[in-house]
Amino acid sequence: MIRKIHLLLGMFLTPWVVMYALSTMVMQHRELVYGQKQRINPEFKVVREEPYQASFKTGDDREAVALQILKDLDLEGAHSVRGNLEQGKLEINRNRAIGSYRITWEAGSDTVKVEQQEFGLAFFLEILHRRSKFNQPYWMNDAWAVIVDLFIVAVLGWAFTGLWMWWGMKSTRKLGGVVMAGGILLFTYLVMTI
């Protein structure tokens, strides 16, 4: 039973395992990947400018306004908002896994500008790696966060079921113990010194 759980969890979570491994390598080797120390965010390109008549007032809740704009454009989903109605400008970032949108609304204008971010593999991996939390009012976002929790449980589960299976094989106990002790010692030493 333990072997089956260990295996099937691994099979289901294979895409996440690969994604977390590759994205960590990208973050570790940014100079190699991007040619500089900082991440390069792909450009946004205008995809459309839509007529948009709205009667938002100074003092309206900007989050409610952003939700309304996203709903009207059929782009509902995880997002963040910059700017405010007092300034007369809102910039809504509709954060998607592939090709995020940036929507700009300006008071006095009768259109909204919709831009989409170009695809960049390294950027895509970094953004996926960082995506987590139950902080958006959308079930899809929560579902991703649930998978992240499942991944955490699986990681700990793989560790403990792996230990269990190792202990069951007498022939590997000694060498496995030495290798594990080496890892623990190195980890402890580094945490105590850097």
């Binding site: 990681v155 560790a159 190792w166 496995g176 890892g183 623990i184 980890f187």
Partner: peptide, 9 residues
Amino acid sequence: GMFCLPWFI
């Protein structure tokens, strides 16, 4: 797995 265990946890 045995070596990476501390990082894994």
